[in-house]
Write a protein that binds this DNA or RNA. Structure first.
Lengths: 250, 250
DNA sequence: CGGCTTCTTGATCTCGATCAATCAGCGTGG
DNA sequence: CCACGCTGATTGATCGAGATCAAGAAGCCG
């Protein structure tokens, strides 16, 4: 993640939706000014999380969803003994915790990858407001629907794609998310470790490292530590889409 | 004109939520009788789908969600050329199409695996009703949240589990869903082909077949064609949870 | 510095894909 | 009724992508 994402402490006037630079991407995106006031009123500001700090832990009681304001987080689900699964990364404007509504508990821990600030949105208040504001309700449905759609894409990636395609897809997706947030899509900093990437993509750390080295040798990207430069977006897209031979189909 | 002639409703008394045997599992589960009337009023009954018939196709405009009344369906997403991904199976009382809200198009085709009946719920009407009925709204959020949670479980399965664990998990999940619908959790019929199972679990057809044979030899299940008998649920659970050595973790 | 963790690179092994062949079911038409 | 063809399922033999094991290198912070 670009450093300025995490460095920027919200000054006071940023701490309101009306003046937040993310408002066009975030939950209140469809609201009129007046409605946004109502929405803004239920938000709780939070002290910034330091790297490694949890926003909440798995199995804690679900109370709120969170909008990322700056920084980034990962969601990790532990099942059985010591076998974690990293199910998502969250960037600014994205909504965290929606999968906890059902069952009333968060299904995974969400942990800051760098200094991170979030807006807390108590869900009972949000639900009440969703009753009054059709646009807010609609946006909430959309957000959840989008997350389901992204999950399906991820399943496809995990069950059909080769290691190379996974890495390429991962870099493209990140690039895209940065672009839509107004940052360079070609030059950014990874806030997650190689281990995180491997865990997320279903690959061994060694494989992640090897593939990045190979991409580098092929001049598709330039990687230095966590700094990434995409040199050939075309090639990268080609790598991600390359026809995988065949699998079961009905 | 007498009412029963002008109505295009199927005359089955089951065709109303109030008397539907699934109402305790389905969307209106939390509604008072009076509210259920309102909900019932927006439902459109549909002619049964025959095996192989699509409920809707990928990229069609999103208009409705559907509740499965009887039978079963699969959701298939095609991307690129001829490379399908089966992302879900749907059983009675489950909600189909929620991932189409965002983007206004269905992200995959949904196809009947056998003769199947569904209730069509126009989404704009549902949304309006969700404004008036907090319980309905809540249940809708829950359904979506649950689907996200299930998706995450699936990601975990695809990225961490061995072929044996996948098959075992699959059978257990099915068994569980049958149990909650009042059917035998130990004896049921698979409505999907081996190819469908393989596609869903990210395995080759041959692997699915081999594992079922092996499970059979170990007296964990008895399989005859699509008929399944679970002989050792304990063993099956053990197979599904067996510690997978190690993978990347942070 | 030294003691960490994270990352890279090399060598080997393994699970499940792929290739190939046969078999079983099942509707269709002669 | 059976022969035919088609699709789905099973079983065997081989192969390869990526995991695992092993050892260094490079950051990073006290």
């Amino acid at each position: 993640m670009p450093d300025h994402l995490s460095r920027r402490r919200p000054s006071l006037h940023e701490a309101r939706c009306q003046t937040c630079s993310l408002s066009s991407l975030c939950l209140p995106l469809a609201l009129e000014l007046e409605d946004m006031d109502h929405f803004d009123a239920i938000i709780r500001r939070r002290a910034p999380l330091k790297k490694g700090e949890p926003l909440f832990r798995q199995d804690e009681t679900f109370t709120s969803v969170f909008a990322v304001r700056s920084g980034s987080l990962k969601q990790v689900t532990t099942e059985g003994s010591g076998n974690d699964q990293l199910t998502n990364f969250y960037l600014p404007s994205e909504l965290v915790g929606l999968d906890g509504i059902d069952e009333e508990h968060y299904p995974g821990s969400v942990i800051a990858l760098e200094t991170t600030t979030v807006c807390e949105i108590p869900f009972d208040r949000l639900d009440m407001l969703a009753e009054e504001l059709p646009d807010l309700r609609s946006q909430l449905f959309r957000s959840m629907s989008k997350e389901m759609r992204d999950d399906r894409r991820m399943m496809r990636l995990l069950s059909r794609k080769t290691a190379d395609q996974r890495m390429a897809s991962f870099l493209i997706t990140l690039s895209d998310r940065f672009r839509r947030r107004g940052y360079s899509p070609f030059s950014f900093r990874l806030s997650m470790s190689r281990a995180d990437i491997g865990n997320y993509l279903g690959l061994a750390v060694e494989t992640v490292s090897r593939i990045l080295s190979r991409f580098q040798n092929q001049d598709v990207v330039a990687v230095s530590g966590r700094e990434v430069n995409i040199l050939g977006m075309q090639r990268l897209v080609a790598l991600a889409e390359e026809e995988t031979p065949e699998v079961a189909s009905s």
